[in-house]
Each structure stands twice: as C-alpha cells, then as structure tokens.
Amino acid sequence: MGLPKARIVPLAVAGATAVAVAVGGGVWWTGKQKFETTDNAFVQADKVSVASLVDGYVAQVLVGDNQPVKAGQLLVRIDPAAIEAKLAQARANAAASEAAILAVDDKARLERALIAQKAAGVESARAEANLAQAELDRYGRLAREGWVSSQRAQTARAGQEQANAAVAQARATLEAERQAAASLNSARAQSEAQAAAARAAVEQTRIDLTRTEVRAPVDGVVGARGVRVGQYVRPGGALMSIVPLGDAYIVANFKETQVSRLRIGQPVEIHADAFGKQTIRGRIDSFAPATGSEFALIPVENAVGNFTKIAQRLPVRIAVDRKQPLAGALRPGLSVKVKVAVTENTGPSFAEASVLPSRVTAH
C-alpha cells in the first residue's frame, strides 16, 4: 500500500532540499578549499596633487575636469611679469658684482705699478744716502786735517741724516703700498662671493620663471580641479589632482584567519559592480606591514578588562594585469570583490614574506 499523496509531496520537497543543501555544501566546501574571497576590497591609485611652486595670478588654465593628460603637458600658466622683473634685477645685480671684481683687479694692477714706483724711490733714496755718507766721510776727514771748516762738516752730516730719513720714508711708503695690495686679495674674495650669490639669485629667479608653467608630473586624468583664471595662488597651494588610472591597484582587507593561505604571486579574480559580470585578472603583490586598525588615527586600545577577540583584517595589495581591456577603467574608490586561487604555490607566503626583511638584514 502506497503512501498518501499528502505525505509524498513534503517528503519529496524535503529530499530535494537535502540534495540541494548537500550539493551546495559540497560546492561551497570545494570552493572554500581552493579559494579565499573577500568583498572588503577597494581600488586605489597613487594620485598626485599638483601645486604651484611660485606665487602669482593665474593667467591660463589649459585643462578641464576629468581630462586625460600626459607627463610634461602644460596645465596652468601663471602670470610671469613680476618674476621677469625680478630676473632682470637679479641679472643687473650679477653684472654689478662682476664689475666690482674687475674694479678690484684694476686697482690691483695700479697697486703693482705703485709698488714698483715706490721700490724705485727706495733705491733712489738709498743712493742719495750713500752719496751723503761719502760726503760726510770726506768732509769729516778734511775737517780733522784743517782743510775745511767744521761748519762744512756739520752741513755734510745734516745732509747724510736727511738722506737716511728719506730712505726710511721711502721704505715705509713701499710697505704701505704692499699692505694695500695685500688687502685687495680679501676685497677680491668678498667681491667673488657677492658675485656668486648674485649668479645664484639669477639662477633661482630663472627657475622660478620656468615654474610659472605648471606641468603634469605623471600620466593620468585630471580631478579635483580647483584653479581658475585670475585666481591668486601661493607656493604649496593645491591646484588639482592627477590620478594615474593606468597604475591603479586593489587593496583587499583579508581576515587574519585567511592570510595563512595567501602567497605572493597567486592569481586573483576581481569583480567590480561597475563592470557587471566581467572579470579582471590580477595577482597578489605584497602584504601590509600591519593591520588596518594600526594605521587608524585613533588606534584601538585592547588593554581593558572586557576584551573580546575580533578577527583583524590585513591589507593585501593586488596588482592588476595591465594587458586587460578593463585594467585602465578602474577608478580609485570603487569597491570590488576578489577571489584568490590559494592552491597555486607561487611566491613566499605571508609568514615567509614577513621574515624576509630580517633575513636580508642578517646577511
């Protein structure tokens, strides 16, 4: 005798449910053994903030919002009039400093000529002194023999003393000229230092003039453009940001219970809601040196009596395969879901990667 229909239907539903649960559980268990997944993952890129290095009024803004740009492309032009005037003044100061060096050199040549003249004066005074000494000797001998008066001998002595004084004066004048010439060395060194400072000022002003043209430091897309024509900007003030979309990467926050199976180089499937069911390929690039909570502005303090253990999450950087069509379409901030094939034994594991730096240091 068969079972009533009222009992057959519930039993059939229960059996189908059991089979579905078993199949689903088997699929889940199989996938769990082969993959580690998380939806706590986001697209990031090392965006660059473009700032002015000089102050002035913005004369031109040559890019618009969300516009792709190339490295070196002109973005903003700042009015160069004020810096051009400073450059002209700096060049004039440099020319004056160079002229000061030439003036010291001219004075040094004049001093050398004066030294030669004073040296000749010393020789002339010495010759006069020798002549006066000879006259004194002759008239002194004649005076002792009575051939000339003592007054004449005294006159010769006075002439000899005057000649000696002239020699001393000539030597003093020569020494003064030599001291003056020596002082020109320090004067020239000072003038050279001033000229070097003036040339440096010219170069700095020339650099500032080139900085009135703000150029893109990297390839990317313009974002957060806040600069406008006529705006007064100062050094360090942000003008816009450039996001290098071609260098975007994924930061996936895995639980600490998952990272033991992760290895550098393992393939990753990336799913973004913005791209529907399309898949992007990548690979594990590196592990963060600390959990995300450690980089928070206010780190969590666990030294309390009512501590409850919560699985922490470790940021894992995932590099995107650049050969894919959608690789350049990733936008920083998008949330994604990642699935890592943990069965592939590629590079070092999380534990091995964590001790590599210490091994390198030890060697």
Rank of each mutant, 00 (worst) to 15 (best):
F275L: 13
E352R: 02
R91K: 15
V202A: 10
I318D: 11
A189L: 07
A99C: 06
N66K: 12
A94P: 09
K47R: 15
R283S: 15
Y139D: 15
N253C: 04
Q278P: 06
G246M: 04
R141S: 14
G328M: 15
D105A: 08
A88Y: 09
I115E: 06
D247K: 08
G265N: 07
A248I: 03
L334D: 02
A196Q: 07
A18Q: 00
K5H: 02
E145R: 10
N306S: 05
A6R: 07
V54Y: 14
V202W: 04
A113T: 13
L245N: 08
T279A: 15
Q278L: 11
N130K: 12
G24V: 01
E301T: 11
E98L: 05
A41P: 10
T308A: 13
E192H: 07
A85C: 09
V229E: 15
I78D: 07
Q89P: 12
L297A: 07
N130E: 15
F35W: 10
E175G: 08
V342C: 01
A327R: 09
G31I: 04
K32A: 13
A296V: 07
E128G: 10
Q194H: 12
A22E: 06
A127H: 01
V221H: 10
A353E: 15
Q154T: 13
S358P: 04
P289F: 00
P289Y: 03
S49Q: 08
T291A: 03
P325Y: 08
S150G: 10
K32S: 13
E301A: 15
T308M: 03
E111M: 15
L53Q: 15
L245H: 09
V27H: 01
Q67V: 02
A290W: 00
E128C: 02
R331D: 13
I8K: 14
Q324D: 14
A12L: 15
D46F: 00
A196S: 00
D39W: 01
K47V: 07
A153I: 01
R261S: 09
E269K: 11
